[in-house]
């Protein structure tokens, strides 16, 4: 049985009230959704909130899933809309202003826990992720979402265009503009450091 067929079987069982099938379906995608939330919001609390909202949206609309698209594409469409809603409620704006503030390099604590207690490889991991979040925070939400969906979720421009209700060419331009901006910022940071 392929992964897609497995997804469909789990969805059917979950719709019949199987708690096991539902939890298995959630576990399959929760890490991707949580990490998407971390990259988009910049902090674990908002990422967890977003993840819960996404799965609640999935649960409410599961009976509408027709199977004509991949379940993952359908799920990330919900995630995209929830992230846009969240941003509209100014929750992400606050995070963005905090992330882009002048003293961002001081006390920038995206991940909980005492960093001194973490092993070295874990510290490197945290540092890499913090650098990526700082970079993404410089982008407006619509560009950040295109980068997220293209680079991290490997969606096609066709799928992204459908989600953002734009043309495929606009989606390509948005992605290129975002990537160029990230490149310029990374170069500036490299020159300054």
């Amino acid at each position: 049985m392929s992964l897609i067929e497995e997804d469909e079987a789990l969805i059917a069982a979950a719709l019949n009230g199987s708690a096991y099938a539902w939890e298995k379906l959630v576990k399959r995608f929760e890490s991707r959704v949580y990490n998407l939330g971390l990259r988009l919001t910049g902090n674990p609390t908002d990422a967890l909130d977003l993840m819960q909202e996404v799965f609640l949206g999935v649960y409410r609309n599961l009976h509408r899933f027709r199977g004509d698209a991949k379940f993952s594409s359908w799920l990330f469409r919900i995630a995209h809309n929830k992230a846009v809603d969240m941003n509209r409620r100014k929750r992400l704006m606050t995070v963005q202003s905090r992330l882009t503030s002048e003293d961002e390099d001081e006390g920038f604590d995206i991940f909980p826990g005492d960093a001194r207690e973490e092993p070295e490889h874990k510290l490197n991991e945290i540092e890499t992720n913090q650098r990526i979040i700082r970079l993404l925070a410089k982008l407006p939400m619509e560009q950040r979402l295109v980068v997220e969906l293209k680079i991290f979720q490997s969606l096609t421009f066709d799928e992204i265009a459908l989600m953002q209700e734009i043309s495929e060419n606009t989606a390509k331009t948005r992605f290129y503009t975002a990537l160029k901006k990230l490149k310029d910022i990374a170069e500036d940071q490299h020159v300054l450091s």
Binding site: N35, F111, T128, N129, L136, V147, F152
Partner: peptide
Amino acid sequence: SLRGWQEQRV
């Protein structure tokens, strides 16, 4: 560089 993201545990 962006793809260097390290997956965080939920």
